[in-house]
Design a protein around this nucleic acid. Structure first.
Lengths: 143, 143
DNA sequence: CTGTGTGCAAACTCTTTGCATAAGT
DNA sequence: ACTTATGCAAAGAGTTTGCACACAG
């Protein structure tokens, strides 16, 4: 995937291409997700955003839709410590910075790892999650 | 760390070296953790194991002790999808295989990544979590 | 119409917390 | 003795589920 921002009208065919019914909630959430480039978002944040855009989708539906999108490959999900699930619209092989102070997540460009691992006999790699946790540098002189 | 299996008598000084009071629960849990080489274990599994060994430690205490051990660097924790926190007695820089079918976790030997990332200005790397998720290979001819 | 999605609330899992009691040094 | 840890139960966060109703094709 990793599409450039998608205009309104392209979303319906996008869903249909993945065999998904184009419901109002799915269209609206997809528009929020794919309308502004790469995003890292949790279910409750997306629900809040949807609500702000006067798109009414319950939290349960947001979870359903995000999990569904993740299953078909429209988004990618991973978990950060604390147990929160983050959904990423960039489904290519890449790593993440996680800022411990702000909770922000950022793609690490150019870091690819999935093909460096040799899976054990009988298994294949489903995905590789790499999270680099960052903390504010404490200057040696300070403290 | 990454110590070879530790005998009984070494555990008390180990805790004291880390400035931790040697309580019965901590001694017992440490013995279970460090007594059999590298382990990947969740709090509830360790609690069950302790119970089986007639060491009575409540789940809350197991969490307290594991989090404390993680803080001082005796163990390392990371989260797998599903939100479970896994505690690893191997605190060196390494990656993990996660078997989706069994839930098992295995160290990947020889894979080191922490020094390959350049943190953004003002930040330093707290840790790098790499989880390679594995699924049973579905033979192309099958299905 | 028919099947599928949605919304709500309740259930569920994992983890943390508050407070009285127990134990360590 | 004094301090810190433990146990219990309850609270908390995040996510999933069951069922009645609504909507898409």
């Amino acid at each position: 995937m990793n599409l450039a921002p998608i205009s309104n009208v392209q979303i319906r065919p996008l869903l249909e291409r993945y065999g998904l019914r184009a419901t109002r909630q799915r269209l609206g959430l997809a528009k929020l997700l794919f309308g502004k480039g790469d995003r890292h978002i949790t279910a409750d944040t997306l629900a809040a955003e949807a609500h702000g855009a006067r798109l009414f989708a319950s939290l349960a539906t947001v979870y359903n839709v995000l999990n569904l999108f993740a299953e078909v490959g429209l988004v990618r999900s991973f978990t950060v410590e604390g147990g929160k699930t983050v959904f990423d619209t960039n489904t290519t092989d890449h790593c993440h910075f996680y800022f411990e102070d702000s909770g922000e997540i950022q793609d690490i460009v150019g870091a690819k790892f999935a093909d460096q691992f040799v899976p054990p006999e009988g298994y294949e790699i489903a995905k590789v999650d790499v999270v680099v946790r960052l903390q504010r540098k404490r200057d040696a002189r300070a403290q």
